[in-house]
Amino acid sequence: MTFTQEITAGGAIMALQGAFTFKDHHSFRALLDTLKTASGPNHILDLSGVDFLDSAALGMLLVADDETRSRGCNLTLQRPSSQIARLLELASMDTLFKIEQ
């Protein structure tokens, strides 16, 4: 998985690409560091380029949610594919995250 990031006044916008699995925990740590330091209340993870999520990736998303909540910020998951959206729904993550199409 790779990601690009853009820091705006509203928060960090990070676009993920490829399969997101446990192997990506190092790069996701960099993403977490950005979330910790970026200003702005609303951060966005653009999942439109993600074609696979494993359960470790779901765990990492939950860690990211914890981090942003602990700082009083929001994390929005944007434009997941239908399969990823269904996975998020089955995992009841649509009740934790704001998911935008």
Binding site: H25, R29, S55, L58, G59, M60, L62, V63, A91, S92
Partner: peptide, 23 residues
């Protein structure tokens, strides 16, 4: 089933927290 999935997610999240903590 819902509780099993909640447990899976909870285990995943704590495992990743432990991974980062151990790092």
């Amino acid at each position: 089933l819902r509780k099993i999935i909640e447990t899976i997610l909870s285990v995943s999240k704590h495992a990743m927290r432990m991974v980062y903590a151990l790092e």
